[in-house]
Amino acid sequence: MNAIEIENLTVWFGAGPDRAEAVRGAALSIPRGASFGLVGESGSGKSTILRAIAGLIPTWSGRIAVEGESLQGARRDRAFHRAVQMVFQDPYASLHPRHTVDRMLSEVLWLHGFRDIDARIERLLSDVGLGRGFRFRYPHQLSGGQRQRVAIARALAPEPRILLLDEPTSALDVSVQAEILNLLSDLRAERGLTYLMVSHDLGVVGHLCQTTAVMRTGEIVEILDVETMRRLQPRHPYTRQLLEASIGLNLGARGAPAPAV
């Protein structure tokens, strides 16, 4: 059984003449325990797919199934929230400015019915590499990387099996990016998590993901595995463009611009 299965997914915003389709006919499937990347430039609809899965966007059609269960609209049940969690792009916006780390984590743990909250908070903080000194701090007393670690701890609190990662490193300094990526890959190895990660950075995706879907203007143009990517043998010209842009050399035979799809 696949962790996430998406068929013919279309997501739109607005209605009538204002209707804009952010994702058109996307299809992908992620086996349990795999790490799947979604790349594309801004506005290509990659984050939209994540938000549709999470239930943050009600206007979609097609089929989304998580662990075999088909999802409807924006309603998600308790079992979904325990199984699937999300880490957001901007750690400055994803933590409540008036809640301490302790309050954030204990509320989440309480919501999921855990009662050994104290012990669990200590364990979560040490799992994401934060000492107990951080427990009673407010977000404004933390750096960007520390905040993202707290956000990851919050996502791990219900012991999910699937993590949706929405550009978890793009708001961070380069050196901190590497730390967070290493943390994420360690956590996946320890806990057997399934990742669906969105990024505009092929390097980040290549570091963390075995399979990658390339998106452009709302459509998935190619799904390739990490070996194909490393050998620089994409089938689609747009993927080639992205790869060239990310490693800064020209693979194209004649250097002609790729035809629009």
């Binding site: 998600r76 999300m86 509320e107 989440v108 999921h112 919050r154």
Partner: peptide, 13 residues
């Protein structure tokens, strides 16, 4: 519509 509200919604609040 801020992310910290999305985050707590995703936790089932």
């Amino acid at each position: 519509n801020s992310d910290f509200i999305h985050a707590i919604r995703l936790q089932g609040a």
